[in-house]
Design a protein around this nucleic acid. Structure first.
Lengths: 221, 221
DNA sequence: TGTACATCAGTGAACGCGCGTTCACTGATGTAC
DNA sequence: TGTACATCAGTGAACGCGCGTTCACTGATGTAC
C-alpha cells in the first residue's frame, strides 16, 4: 500500500499565484463536500475561488490532475496528523490492554480527519475507494506494530493474523458508528466496547476450534 | 432503514418491450461494473443493449429514473436471496456458538451478491453509499434477532449493544478481506476467526471495565 | 530613484464535444367484426 | 380468415446545454543597470 502517485502540477512561482492555488484547493474540497461529485466542475471551482479558468489551467494540465493533486494533498495531510498523533505518546511503556485502548481511541479520532474526502475523490477519479482503503491500511499497519510489541500477552495462535483481523473489526465498528444518524454512542462507551472486543479476541479462550458444527451451503452466486 | 423509494417507470405492455427493458438493465449493470460511473451514459447503454434512445425514453423519464430503478432492482433481488438463505435453516435448534458461526458464514456469502452494485449506484446518484449502507443494516438486523434468541448465553452487560457492535465488527473484517487483492484467507479460516472474535466478545471475560488506563487527548480536528 | 524589459499571473470570451433529451416517423402487435 | 384500425414498440437524426479546454490579451511582479 503506497501513497497515490505524485501529481505533477506547474508550481506557483509567486506568493500571489500560490494563494490562488490554495483558494482553488479549498473551493474544490468545499464543493465536493457540499454538492458531491456532480458539483465539482472547473467553472464552479474557479468561481467559488474568485479565480478564472485561465488561472486554473496555468497550474493544472486539466481536471484529472486537479483530482490527483487533491488526493495527494489530503493523503499527505491526514498521514502527517496521524504520525504526529502516534508519536505523541511513548507506547513502549504500556501493556497490551493500554496499547489496545490507545489504538482504539486513535482510530476513532482519525475518523474525524479529512480523510473522508479521499473516498469522494476516489469515486470522482474512477478508482472506487482504492486510495481511501490504502490510507486505512496505512493507519492499521502502524497500530499493528504497536500492539505486536506485546505479543507475549496474546493468546491467539497466530498473533499477526489476530491483530490484523481484530483491528479491521474495530475499524468496522467505528465506521458504522460514524455513519449512523441516530443513537450514536458516546465516545467513551465506543472506546470501551471496541477495547473489550479486541482484547477478548486477542486474549480470550473462546477461540478453541469448532468443527462441523454448522454446514452451510452457499446460496449466493 | 427502508428500501429506496419505488422508481416509477412506464411499465412494458408487450413481451417484446419487456425483453428490451431487461437488456437495458443488464447493459447498465455491465457498464457500471466494467467502466464505472463515467461509462454509464444513455447512448452507451442503449448501444450495448441493442436498443435505441427512443426505446429508452419510452420506459424511463430520464437517466435519474434509470438509476433509481436499478437501485430498486438490485436491492430487491439481493434481499430476496438473503431472506431465502436465512429461511433455509431452522435456527431455533442451534446454540449460540452455532448461530454465530452460521451468521458469519451468511455474511461472507452475502458479500458475493450483486449488492456491491448498490454502492456504485449510490455514488452515481449523489447519495454517497446510503442505500448500500441501508442494505447492510437490513442484513445485520435479521442476524441480530437470531443471535439474541440465545441471549441467555451472552455474558456482556448489554446483549443488544454487544450483538450490534459485534456483527458490525465481523462485517468490517469480511469487507476488508474481500477488498484485499493478496493474501486472502480461505473461507473456513475467515469463518473461524470471525466466529472466535464475536463469540469471545459476547461471552468472554475480558470485558470488565478499565478506567483511566490511558488518557488520550484528541489530535484530530 | 527611474526606466526598460522579461517573466509570471490573471482574465473571460469562445470553441468543440459529448451528454441527456425530443420528436417525427416506421414497423409490430393486439382487437373488433 | 380477412380487413381496418388503434395502440404499442422501436428508430436515429437533431437539438440545446454545460462541460473541459484554448487563447489572445491585460496587468503585476521581479530584475538589470
Amino acid at each position: 500500500m503506497t501513497a497515490p502517485k505524485t501529481a505533477r502540477i506547474r508550481p506557483p512561482k509567486q506568493s500571489r499565484s500560490k494563494r490562488t492555488l490554495e483558494r482553488i484547493v479549498e473551493a474544490s474540497l468545499e464543493l465536493l463536500a457540499t454538492e458531491g461529485l456532480a458539483g465539482l466542475t472547473v467553472h464552479r471551482v474557479v468561481a467559488r475561488a474568485d479565480s478564472s479558468v485561465g488561472s486554473f489551467y496555468a497550474r493544472f494540465d486539466g481536471k484529472d490532475e486537479l483530482l490527483d493533486y487533491l488526493g495527494e494533498r489530503v493523503w499527505t495531510e491526514a498521514l502527517e496528523r496521524w504520525e504526529t498523533a502516534l508519536q505523541t505518546r511513548d507506547w513502549s511503556a504500556l501493556d497490551l490492554a493500554d496499547v489496545v485502548e490507545g489504538a482504539v481511541g486513535l482510530l476513532i479520532d482519525a475518523q474525524r480527519s479529512r480523510s473522508a474526502y479521499l473516498k469522494a475523490l476516489d469515486w470522482a477519479s474512477g478508482r472506487q475507494g482504492d486510495a481511501y482503503e490504502a490510507f486505512r491500511n496505512e493507519l492499521l499497519q502502524g497500530l499493528r506494530q504497536l500492539i505486536l510489541q506485546n505479543r507475549g500477552d496474546i493468546a491467539h495462535d497466530d498473533p499477526e493474523l489476530a491483530v490484523r483481523l481484530g483491528l479491521r473489526g474495530v475499524l468496522g465498528v467505528v465506521d458504522s458508528e460514524f455513519r449512523a444518524t441516530q443513537d450514536r454512542l458516546p465516545r467513551d462507551v465506543l472506546i470501551e466496547e471496541c477495547r473489550s472486543m479486541l482484547m477478548s479476541y486477542l486474549t480470550g479462550d473462546a477461540g478453541e476450534g469448532r468443527t462441523g458444527g454448522v454446514d452451510f451451503f452457499e446460496v449466493w452466486g
